[in-house]
């Protein structure tokens, strides 16, 4: 017994290290945000407030570039709106068409924390359950998709970024119905991979990739990116692409959370 005690006191630092290292590793292997407490991430009240305070200063950086982006996007939407109005007018009564209910609502949120260099990236936004945000909702900005809500507290939410291999988003080519899954390969924050696209799908380099609307998170047609090149797939029956993302993850400032008021039951 005395020998055992002496062994422990002599190797005290080692055992302290061993216990704490094993504890850290246990936390690390269970790091999936859907399963752990919101206190273990940046969306809890304390870290949320710290980031919100810091963002009240740094949020002004890069506004010029974001402004340009918004104006370009506004112009595109204006064009699209005119075109659609023209097309709709030819077919049905425009006013009744515009009154038809759309099941999606957008909640605007500020990004208070964002990372792009880690192996698994997350964002923190300043809207939480009290603003109607729920786990699983899609998040996009004016350029394209950003991610999906993984955890919420009262005033903050943790968003699992597209730049995180834990998130797979159902996506397709704009001119086709065949779906694939978009996942980040960790190499470069400008690109992601679109896997499992059936081989018979016609495509060209530069084709636009959009969300499919097969999940409750995103409606069909949220822009994702454009095909940059074809890459070897794991399976010969499918195609894989490297997709250049539309979203500039290095300067995300404002996003909208897409709330689905009429989710389809699974």
């Amino acid at each position: 017994m005395q020998n055992l005690l002496r062994f422990f006191t002599r190797n005290g630092p080692f055992f302290t290290w061993l216990v704490l290292a094993v504890l850290s590793l246990l936390l690390f292997v269970q790091r999936n945000p859907y399963q752990r407490s919101v206190w273990f991430g940046s969306a809890n009240r304390v870290s949320g407030e710290v980031y919100a305070w810091s963002n009240s200063v740094s949020g002004y950086f890069g506004l010029r570039a974001i402004n340009e982006d918004l104006l370009v996007r506004l112009g595109k939407l204006e064009e699209e709106n005119l075109l659609l109005r023209q097309q709709v007018r030819n077919h049905i009564d425009l006013d009744s068409a515009l009154l038809a209910p759309v099941p999606y609502r957008f909640v605007v949120a500020h990004v208070v924390q964002n990372s792009i260099i880690q192996a698994e990236n997350y964002l923190t936004i300043d809207k939480g359950t009290e603003d109607g945000i729920q786990v699983g909702m899609g998040v996009a900005d004016h350029n394209g998709i950003v991610g999906q809500v993984a955890k919420t507290s009262n005033h903050f939410s943790l968003v699992i970024s597209v730049l995180n291999p834990l998130l797979q988003t159902s996506s397709c080519l704009k001119n086709s119905e065949s779906i694939g899954s978009l996942v980040w390969d960790g190499a470069n924050p400008l690109y992601a991979r679109l896997n499992n696209v059936p081989r018979n799908v016609p495509f060209e380099i530069g084709d636009t990739v959009i969300t499919t609307g097969f999940s409750n998170a995103f409606p069909r047609g949220v822009p994702v990116g454009r095909i940059y090149e074809e890459v070897p797939a794991a399976d010969n029956n499918f195609l894989s692409f490297r997709v250049e993302l539309f979203t500039h993850f290095d300067r995300i400032n404002n996003v909208h959370v897409i709330t689905n008021t009429n989710p389809c039951p699974f």
């Binding site: 290290w17 704490l20 290292a21 504890l23 698994e120």
Partner: peptide, 30 residues
């Protein structure tokens, strides 16, 4: 070592990398 663990844990909470910095700092302190 305990202090290293705590510093790592605080960093982890802010960086959403739970356990990662805690492990690295614990090991460094040891």
């Amino acid at each position: 070592i305990l202090l290293g663990f705590l510093i790592g844990l605080i960093l982890d909470i802010f960086c959403n990398t739970i356990g990662l910095h805690a492990f690295a700092m614990t090991t460094t302190m040891w």
